[in-house]
Design a protein around this nucleic acid. Structure first.
Lengths: 244, 244
DNA sequence: ATGCAGAAATTGGTAGGACCATTGGACCAC
DNA sequence: GTGGTCCAATGGTCCTACCAATTTCTGCAT
């Protein structure tokens, strides 16, 4: 006897129905992120529901980061929507910032290594060329501005996730990336943060180009290790600022 | 000159103010998960805002999984809340095909191994006892019903994630679990699905109890590998049902 | 024509009131 | 006890009106 054989019935689910209708709408109209979707009043009239109900539904989507509402302007699509989407709110209630940052890095350590290994297994010659291109851009930015660039660095990593063939890597690590940078603000006083990670980017690329999964995994782990070290240095600096 | 030194002022942020007030309320009243919080009407009156505004705020919290609203009964706290909490919606685009299922397993492979290793490093004697308890329950269920039990098996794994000390493991793997089981229902015709993974549970536990991170990692990888094999067998069976 | 200030329309945000649907307890008949 | 009915409390929905921010239009001065 399975307890799931008698699921609770749903008599009313107005907001869910509204959201389902909206999913169908954006698909029918082929709306892209950035596009404006109909007025709350229009939606309420078309769907034959109260404007309040429409607002509750849109509030939920706003909380999920799917839409953005601008007073006086309209409601805009912020991300692609599809019928089979899973929403999972991540809650990070760690004590201090340092702990939370380390937590995001632990996830990245696991996923980054796996993605690099899969990438080395599955990369086509065109994929390898694309990754090299991103690597060149990143290295040039590094030399020009004499420091790690968040932007180009991120592009390089994203290319690896994409080539891994598993879209979940990019989506989850992107969430970690954003979570990380939300705690960031002040770089904990470490001026050359990320500097030590630079050489490992090329090392990862070379392993991928050589179709060496284990090597790519190892180099990715080293890269994350340098970031963790920087983070620990910063935390120590904050705790003992006078003992320099 | 940091662009963040001049954040945009907030002329109106009623719902945020409501949520902040609610955080203060649950802390002042020391509310625990499961407790009921005041009526929407009461909140609207006390906070001097419209009931609509209260509802929008509660809708956001509901979306984050912090509260649960039951019509006719009330609104109940579902998770602990604190002022310094960071929420980040993770939206994953899944599919219902074989490839998507494999993708979730690739993520689990990476995270499961890392979590097991961290668990082996950080587990206290009490933690190890707790994990053993879950393992016993699972093994008994296995022998009684002669098959892997999704429920008890999941409890065992969750215990490991918790002991890892990083709440993100449990949350992200839970998302993978959800994606996987969304299209589960029938185990692709493989009756003894997961059977092969059984012995590795105890193997993982023994590595954790022995404080052997590398061993725990290796056993976790083997466990996921058996699940991947089962999945492939099921897919082959679906494609070639007549060639048995 | 051009440019710009101010009016007007549009749109999301808030307010307040009313009613419906569900829940859970009180109460009662059997 | 069991089952049923009633009733108050509570979230869900609807309606209308107005506020606040934004965009668009208008019309005057140049």
């Amino acid at each position: 006897m399975d307890q799931n054989s008698l699921p609770p019935i749903q008599t009313t689910a107005r907001d869910d129905a509204v959201l389902k209708a909206l999913v169908g709408f954006v698909r029918a109209e082929a709306l892209q992120p950035g596009d404006r979707l109909p007025t709350e009043r229009i939606l309420a009239e078309r769907l034959k529901v109260s404007r309040n109900t429409v607002r509750e539904a849109l509030t939920r989507w706003e909380g999920l980061g799917l839409v953005e509402r601008r007073q006086g302007s309209g409601t805009y699509l912020k991300a692609a929507v599809s019928p089979d989407m899973l929403h999972m709110p991540l809650t990070l209630a760690g004590g201090n910032d340092f702990t939370s940052l380390m937590h995001t890095l632990e996830i990245r350590r696991a996923l980054e290594a796996e993605a690099a290994a899969l990438c080395a297994e599955r990369a086509s010659p065109a994929d390898i060329a694309e990754i090299m291109r991103k690597l060149d851009i990143m290295e040039q930015a590094f030399r020009t501005r004499d420091g790690m660039s968040s932007e180009e660095d991120w592009e390089f990593h994203q290319a690896i996730y994409r080539v891994s063939g598993n879209p979940l890597f990019e989506q989850i690590i992107a969430a970690m990336h954003e979570l990380f940078h939300r705690f960031w603000e002040h770089p904990l006083g470490v001026r050359d943060f990320g500097h030590a990670s630079f050489p490992y980017h090329r090392a990862i690329y070379e392993c991928i180009a050589a179709r060496d999964p284990q090597g790519a995994r190892a180099e990715a782990l080293k890269l994350i290790a340098t970031v963790e070290d920087d983070l620990k240095r910063g935390a120590a600096k904050l705790k003992l600022p006078s003992q320099t």
